[in-house]
Deep mutational scan, measured.
Amino acid sequence: HIECVVCGDKSSGKHYGQFTCEGCKSFFKRSVRRNLTYTCRANRNCPIDQHHRNQCQYCRLKKCLKVGMRREAVQRG
């Protein structure tokens, strides 16, 4: 199976330009649609994997963008 490029979980297909799991797909869509801004409580390099992906939204969104998920691919409302 193909892994989610963000957290390594099982990918459910290509979403917003990259293969991601449902969790990262939904997180990215929600973040972009609502134009959410997050803050990192650590050093902005938190581990984002299957077990830690919900611990830091700032670093999760940063990783989504770093691996090539595209904001412009998210349809507005």
Rank of each mutant, 00 (worst) to 15 (best):
H1C: 05
H1A: 09
H1K: 15
H1F: 04
H1Q: 14
I2K: 05
I2T: 06
I2N: 12
I2D: 13
I2G: 00
E3T: 09
E3K: 06
C4G: 02
C4Y: 00
C4A: 00
V5M: 15
V5G: 11
V5C: 10
V5I: 15
V6E: 01
V6A: 04
V6I: 09
V6T: 01
C7P: 00
C7K: 03
C7W: 01
C7G: 02
C7H: 00
G8V: 01
G8L: 12
G8R: 11
G8W: 06
G8K: 14
D9E: 15
D9N: 08
D9H: 02
K10Y: 12
K10H: 05
K10P: 12
S11C: 15
S11H: 15
S11K: 11
S12P: 08
S12D: 15
S12C: 03
S12K: 06
S12W: 02
G13I: 06
G13S: 06
G13L: 04
G13F: 06
K14E: 15
K14Y: 09
K14G: 05
K14A: 15
K14M: 11
K14S: 15
H15T: 05
H15V: 07
Y16V: 07
Y16Q: 13
G17K: 04
G17I: 03
G17F: 03
G17A: 04
Q18M: 13
F19S: 12
F19C: 06
F19Y: 15
T20S: 13
T20V: 14
T20M: 09
T20R: 01
T20N: 06
T20H: 03
T20P: 04
T20A: 09
C21Y: 00
C21H: 01
C21Q: 04
E22N: 07
E22I: 03
E22C: 07
G23Y: 14
G23S: 07
G23I: 02
G23T: 11
C24Q: 00
C24M: 00
K25E: 15
K25D: 15
K25C: 13
K25T: 11
S26I: 02
S26V: 13
S26C: 07
S26N: 05
F27N: 06
F27H: 02
F28S: 01
F28G: 00
F28K: 04
F28C: 01
K29Y: 03
K29T: 12
K29M: 09
K29A: 09
K29C: 02
K29L: 06
K29W: 07
K29G: 13
K29H: 10
S31L: 03
S31D: 00
S31Q: 12
V32A: 07
V32R: 02
V32I: 08
V32F: 09
V32H: 15
R33N: 08
R34T: 05
R34V: 07
R34A: 15
R34I: 13
N35V: 08
N35P: 04
N35G: 11
L36E: 14
L36Q: 08
L36W: 08
L36Y: 03
T37H: 14
T37P: 12
T37A: 13
Y38Q: 03
Y38G: 04
Y38S: 01
T39M: 07
C40Y: 02
C40H: 00
C40A: 00
C40G: 02
C40E: 02
C40M: 02
C40D: 03
R41W: 14
R41L: 15
R41P: 15
R41C: 12
R41E: 14
R41I: 14
A42T: 05
A42D: 11
A42S: 12
A42H: 09
A42K: 11
A42P: 00
N43V: 14
N43L: 09
N43D: 15
R44T: 12
R44P: 04
R44N: 14
R44H: 11
N45C: 06
N45V: 09
N45M: 05
N45T: 14
C46S: 02
C46P: 03
C46H: 03
P47W: 06
P47T: 07
I48H: 00
I48S: 05
I48P: 01
I48D: 05
I48T: 08
D49G: 08
D49H: 05
D49F: 11
D49T: 07
Q50T: 09
Q50M: 08
H51R: 07
H51Y: 08
H51T: 08
H52Y: 06
H52N: 08
H52D: 08
R53D: 12
R53M: 08
R53Y: 15
N54D: 09
N54Y: 08
N54F: 06
N54M: 11
N54L: 10
N54T: 09
Q55Y: 10
Q55W: 13
C56R: 00
C56P: 00
C56L: 02
C56K: 00
C56V: 01
Q57P: 10
Q57H: 12
Q57A: 10
Q57S: 09
Y58E: 12
Y58A: 11
Y58I: 00
Y58M: 05
C59D: 02
R60H: 12
R60F: 14
R60S: 03
L61E: 04
L61P: 02
L61G: 02
L61W: 10
K62S: 11
K63E: 07
K63V: 05
K63S: 03
K63M: 10
K63P: 02
K63D: 00
K63W: 04
C64L: 03
C64Q: 01
C64F: 00
C64I: 00
L65A: 06
L65W: 07
L65F: 10
L65R: 03
L65E: 13
L65G: 04
K66L: 10
K66M: 12
K66W: 08
K66I: 09
K66G: 08
K66D: 10
V67S: 08
V67G: 05
V67R: 07
V67F: 08
V67H: 07
G68F: 02
G68M: 02
G68K: 01
G68L: 03
M69D: 00
M69P: 02
M69A: 00
R70F: 11
R70C: 09
R70L: 13
R71T: 12
R71S: 11
R71Y: 13
R71W: 08
R71Q: 12
E72Y: 07
E72K: 04
A73K: 06
A73H: 12
A73Q: 13
A73P: 08
A73T: 10
A73C: 12
V74Y: 04
V74H: 08
V74M: 06
V74S: 06
Q75F: 10
Q75V: 10
Q75G: 13
R76T: 12
R76G: 14
R76Y: 12
R76E: 14
G77C: 08
